[in-house]
Design a protein around this nucleic acid. Sequence first.
DNA 1: TACAGTACTTTGTATTGCATAGTACTAAAA
DNA 2: TTTTAGTACTATGCAATACAAAGTACTGTA
Lengths: 113, 113
Amino acid sequence: MNLENTKAQMRKGVLELCILALLEHKDAYASDIIEHLKKAEMIVVEGTLYPLLTRLKNAELLAYRWEESTSGPPRKYYSLTPTGKKALTELHTSWDTLVEAVKKTTQKKSNQP
Amino acid sequence: MNLENTKAQMRKGVLELCILALLEHKDAYASDIIEHLKKAEMIVVEGTLYPLLTRLKNAELLAYRWEESTSGPPRKYYSLTPTGKKALTELHTSWDTLVEAVKKTTQKKSNQP
DNA sequence: TACAGTACTTTGTATTGCATAGTACTAAAA
DNA sequence: TTTTAGTACTATGCAATACAAAGTACTGTA
């Protein structure tokens, strides 16, 4: 069992929720997103994020606009669509349900018959 | 975005923790494990569980013994090895860290600068 | 003996995080 | 002006795992 690998597996499916949540209140471009996630100790790298942003855009959960930057090349700012807002709520529920299920499964000491 | 599919992705990496936790206090065979997990609302099916149990056995986190059954074919009872106990602790920590990171990421309202 | 219920094994597929290689833009340095 | 560095984005192939599905095997019952 490789712990780092298992951690990466645990992240599957969760990053979508995190990214949608980050964009709920404020548009952001990829590097910004990575920084915010890093600050929250949620690891994600470019090779993951860009394709994920593209997938979410293709699924119409995200929209984007180009914005010139004063310190480098132009940036792609993403924002939530109304569909994205709805998906965020559903993902939140799914995650909470999973957390609850894991808690029930891993804290069986007092429930032991 | 297919919600059921995302839920399945969210389960990746987590099932290992749940199964090790279930076996922490009591040996069990596959159908038992499925039942316990179902009761905790953690969905897992045969096609997932059997290969996973085999992987964990091959990684020496689990051991097993055959036990005759009075109501059908013999059963393979799995138990935690000492290595498995150690891995369980590590997985627990990883999961808790992830939950914390998701919480930080998705509850940014009061931290918004 | 045939069938049903139970338990386990195997295999192939879909999906996504990630590493890696590459393109493109802009400002600053040479 | 050209080159370089920093920044931003795109594309591709790989590894791992949840899952569906097909199959084998054992036991008791009809």
